[in-house]
Design a protein around this nucleic acid. Structure first.
Length: 492
RNA sequence: GGCGCUAUCGUCUAGGGGUUAGGACGUCAGAUUCUCAAUCUGAAAACCCGGGUUCGAUUCCCGGUAGCGCUACCA
């Protein structure tokens, strides 16, 4: 097809969740790869459940992911006239009829059928009402919904790009409602109307819509309108194989953003949930995705969302990201944590950049910069208890660290080799393994048991700060030893 | 319940009438040593079950089972 037109049509009854994000992504990839147009449409015909702030959140989520659109957003709540016109057209040509059955009565019938374990479909009570009878009831002011007149026999078949040929006996399809008695359109009416009006050529959406598609196909045919190509996407499941929901923890795209996941990583991860690029490489650029993506290659089976793999992918992106791209993101992270200094000297800027470079090789998330990496951006950090227990065991450590601090102050230049020679020399003199000193110093400098290599870390932190922190650690160690004794003495 | 869809390692998947059934995440072991990550090497790990077609089925067909979806005057 020459210039495909696709749409992403979220309903603002919740935040943008990962399933919706993947649907948006697949639409976007297909459109971008084929010179197509992507339309954004907000399906807010359910006035009770739709909330404007949720629309805003969805838009923000899409923007954060970098998924832009060419037309819209259209709001279905502002296009009611269109739906009513389509409804009238269907009614005039006999493809739809008014139904006067009160909703309560229908509910009763349905419940009774369920209790008796009979399958229930609308019983078509109003299907063959005469013209006069309809006019009479309307004259009485009885409210009516508009129902689609489904053929009583035959099959409805369509070809789905993902699932292939799908067919359903028309006897399985009930006379569904197009227009509610309050004049509001239902989903089926509004999608078909809009997809027609917006000249949508490819309907790409979740597989939860697959069973309803025959109804829409019937509408296109009744209207004599060209049918779009359908592509239904398998669902994303939680680890228990249940449909992904709040119970599984983070489902909203926003939650991953807060967890320090990069949008690039989330996109890449989502792209792989149901689709495999040729060549087997899993970390691929957006350009490659666009070039390779094909709806026909999408998997038919549901996929379990694996947060572990996402975390891995995030660390890959973090590690590979060039500094100029990473810097603004780390800045945002540090700002949020109150660790950002807006005024930097050239030397401080260099130190900041070196710190980021050092941290990024082992970061799993953006949060690591303000979390375990805090000591690189602030003197106000604490020693993790795990680190102290693991590496601050030797009783003479305070003495050694003081000595190390002193000796390091005398080094010039303060370089990688010099600092290492200095520390190893001291270790040898004291008859201890260098590792003992290295690990203890790492805790003193970063507060962490896990951090970058010690000597790189020292260079990045700078001579003065290193000496100061070692000395402070020595002081803290001495206090930790004498402190409890004093307490004992002080207690009568 | 009815109808539909789906079924390859724990997870995401490649593959396809004859393969040592491939890769990735995760897991385990080893190398490295300065913690951790990275890296390298290695290992364990899968074709849901039963029939049929066929010289030969994981692959094709049918049935079963399981999972999911739909079954609203929600979307």
């Amino acid at each position: 097809m020459a210039n495909p037109r696709l749409r992403f049509a979220p309903s603002p009854t919740g935040y943008l969740h990962v399933g919706g994000a993947r649907t948006a992504l697949y639409n976007w990839l297909y459109a971008r790869g084929r010179g197509g147009t992507l339309i954004l449409r907000i399906e807010d015909t359910d006035a009770d459940r739709s909330k404007p702030e949720l629309t805003a959140a969805i838009l923000e989520g899409l923007e954060w992911l970098g998924l832009d659109w060419d037309e819209g957003p259209y709001y279905q709540s502002q296009r009611l006239g269109l739906y009513r016109a389509r409804a009238a057209e269907l009614e005039q040509q006999g493809s739809a009829y008014p139904c006067f059955c009160p909703p309560e009565l229908l509910r009763e019938k349905r419940e009774r059928a369920e209790a008796e374990r009979r399958p229930w479909k609308y019983d078509r009570t109003c299907r063959q009402l005469s013209v006069d009878e309809r006019a009479r009831r309307r004259g009485e002011g009885r409210p009516s919904a508009l129902r689609f007149r489904v053929p009583e026999s035959g099959q409805t078949t369509f070809n789905d790009l993902v699932f292939g040929r799908v067919e359903l006996a028309n006897t399985e399809i009930e006379d569904f409602v197009l227009l509610r008695s309050d004049g509001q359109p239902t989903y089926h009416l509004s999608v078909v109307t809009d997809d027609l009006d917006l000249r949508v050529t490819h309907v790409v959406r979740g597989a939860d819509h697959l069973p309803n598609t025959p109804k829409q196909v019937l509408m296109y045919r009744a209207l004599g309108a060209p049918e779009p190509v359908f592509a239904h996407l398998p669902l994303i499941l939680g680890p228990d194989k249940q449909r992904l929901s709040k119970r599984h923890g983070a489902t909203a795209v926003e939650a991953y953003r807060r967890q320090g996941i990069l949008p690039e990583a989330l996109i890449n991860f989502l792209a792989l949930l149901g689709w495999t690029p040729r060549g087997g490489r899993e970390i691929i650029s957006l350009e490659e995705m666009i070039a390779q993506f094909d709806l026909a290659a999408v998997s038919k089976s549901n996929a379990v969302f694996d947060p572990e793999k996402l975390a891995w992918m995030n660390s890959e992106y973090l590690r590979r990201m060039p500094l100029e791209k990473l810097l603004p993101r780390v800045q945002a992270e540090l700002e949020a944590a109150g660790l950002w200094n807006p005024v930097l000297t050239a030397a401080e800027k260099k130190r900041l950049e070196d710190s980021i470079r050092l941290l990024q090789t082992r970061a799993r998330s953006l949060n690591d910069f303000s979390g375990s990496g805090r000591a690189f951006f602030s003197d106000d950090f604490s020693y993790s208890s795990e680190a102290r227990e693991k590496f601050w065991k030797e009783p003479q450590l305070a003495e050694w660290l003081t000595e190390l601090s002193r000796r390091l102050m005398d080094i010039h230049p303060f370089g990688l080799e010099q600092t290492e020679r200095c520390l190893r020399g001291l270790a040898e003199e004291k008859g201890i393994r260098a590792g003992v000193l290295i690990n203890a110093a790492r805790v003193a400098l970063t507060g962490q048991a896990v951090a970058p290599g010690l000597f790189e870390l020292m260079i990045t932190l700078g001579q003065q700060r290193v000496a100061r922190r070692l000395e402070k650690a020595a002081t803290d160690l001495r206090q930790a030893i004498t402190g409890p004794l004093n307490e004992v003495k002080g207690t009568p």
